[in-house]
Amino acid sequence: MNLKIDPFLLHYTILGYSVVFIAAMILAGWLSDRIGRKPVVLAGFIGTALAAYPVFLGVTLYAHPRLAAAMTTHPVTVAADPATCSRQFDPFGLTEFHGSCDIARRAVAKLGVPYRQSRRVTGRAAQVEIGAAVIPAFEGGGLDRAIFTEQAKAFDGALAAALADAGYPARAAPETTNVRC
């Protein structure tokens, strides 16, 4: 998920976490000399695994509270037949995805909005559900490149408008960011 927060705030947040991380490394080194390395490493793995999800939720809540509120009140779901969804791992940008599921997931991800995926009746095009709003995707296989591009732009525009109507902000407003400790 892309929080689209102010770069100035982001750099100072990373600096703050880096200072805390360095202090934790020094403490872990001291502690490993006292009780051994295995317990310290194991505690670090377990602590990281348990803290990761709540930390990311907290960052979203404090850095972009309007996004956190929209995610709660109007969750986004991509409803599609799982058989039509492909793995979207394309590190070089060479693969073109034309299935309705892939079109819907790409569009939602491109806007930086978290979503979940649910099963849909086989043989029907995917759709994006934002709260009660439903935006149907299109099947792009076999379409001419120009027509595909035109339909993709129309779908992206309809999706962006529905997200805006549901309260999803385009970017984080610096005045709403809660930076107090």
Results as ranks from 00 to 15, higher is better:
residue 16 G to I: 15
residue 18 S to H: 03
residue 41 V to E: 03
residue 16 G to C: 11
residue 49 A to M: 10
residue 4 K to C: 06
residue 30 W to H: 11
residue 25 M to H: 04
residue 178 N to H: 03
residue 143 L to A: 02
residue 46 I to V: 13
residue 137 A to G: 01
residue 174 P to M: 13
residue 148 F to M: 00
residue 130 I to W: 00
residue 85 C to H: 09
residue 19 V to Y: 08
residue 59 V to E: 03
residue 114 P to S: 01
residue 131 G to Q: 00
residue 98 H to Y: 08
residue 44 G to E: 07
residue 134 V to Y: 00
residue 139 E to W: 00
residue 22 I to P: 04
residue 137 A to N: 01
residue 143 L to I: 03
residue 161 A to R: 04
residue 94 L to I: 13
residue 118 S to P: 02
residue 65 P to A: 11
residue 38 K to N: 11
residue 79 A to C: 12
residue 32 S to R: 04
residue 145 R to Y: 04
residue 30 W to E: 05
residue 15 L to M: 02
residue 141 G to A: 15
residue 20 V to Y: 08
residue 62 Y to S: 02
residue 28 A to K: 01
residue 136 P to D: 15
residue 82 P to W: 14
residue 77 T to K: 06
residue 177 T to V: 14
residue 140 G to V: 07
residue 72 T to W: 13
residue 169 P to V: 13
residue 180 R to V: 11
residue 135 I to F: 09
residue 107 A to K: 02
residue 82 P to R: 13
residue 111 L to M: 14
residue 96 E to N: 12
residue 94 L to Q: 11
residue 33 D to K: 14
residue 48 T to F: 08
residue 35 I to K: 02
residue 39 P to F: 00
residue 25 M to S: 11
residue 143 L to E: 07
residue 169 P to K: 06
residue 132 A to T: 04
residue 64 H to K: 03
residue 79 A to Y: 02
residue 26 I to A: 12
residue 113 V to A: 03
residue 75 P to S: 01
residue 92 F to L: 14
residue 46 I to Q: 00
residue 170 A to C: 06
residue 105 R to K: 14
residue 136 P to Q: 08
residue 132 A to R: 13
residue 40 V to F: 11
residue 128 V to T: 05
residue 171 R to Y: 12
residue 84 T to A: 01
residue 74 H to T: 14
residue 78 V to S: 01
residue 8 F to I: 12
residue 131 G to R: 07
residue 100 S to F: 09
residue 110 K to A: 15
residue 169 P to R: 10
residue 107 A to F: 01
residue 86 S to L: 10
residue 103 I to Q: 08
residue 29 G to E: 09
residue 115 Y to G: 03
residue 66 R to Q: 15
residue 51 A to V: 09
residue 107 A to W: 08
residue 90 D to P: 02
residue 178 N to P: 02
residue 140 G to L: 09
residue 6 D to N: 06
residue 124 R to E: 14
residue 124 R to V: 05
residue 142 G to E: 04
residue 104 A to C: 04
residue 14 I to Q: 11
residue 88 Q to I: 07
residue 41 V to D: 06
residue 28 A to P: 09
residue 55 V to I: 15
residue 121 V to G: 13
residue 119 R to W: 08
residue 82 P to Q: 05
residue 127 Q to W: 07
residue 66 R to L: 08
residue 120 R to I: 00
residue 115 Y to K: 01
residue 167 G to W: 01
residue 70 A to N: 09
residue 22 I to L: 15
residue 22 I to W: 06
residue 72 T to V: 14
residue 15 L to Y: 10
residue 23 A to F: 10
residue 31 L to T: 10
residue 74 H to P: 08
residue 4 K to T: 10
residue 58 G to M: 11
residue 140 G to A: 08
residue 154 A to F: 05
residue 120 R to M: 06
residue 160 A to L: 03
residue 165 D to C: 05
residue 43 A to F: 09
residue 139 E to P: 05
residue 164 A to Y: 07
residue 102 D to R: 06
residue 117 Q to Y: 06
residue 111 L to P: 14
residue 148 F to W: 07
residue 68 A to S: 04
residue 162 A to E: 12
residue 23 A to V: 10
residue 133 A to F: 13
residue 117 Q to H: 01
residue 134 V to C: 13
residue 29 G to L: 14
residue 176 T to L: 09
residue 107 A to P: 01
residue 75 P to H: 00
residue 111 L to K: 13
residue 114 P to L: 12
residue 171 R to C: 02
residue 66 R to C: 07
residue 166 A to I: 05
residue 148 F to E: 01
residue 32 S to P: 02
residue 177 T to Y: 04
residue 91 P to T: 05
residue 148 F to P: 00
residue 68 A to T: 02
residue 21 F to N: 05
residue 124 R to S: 11
residue 47 G to T: 12
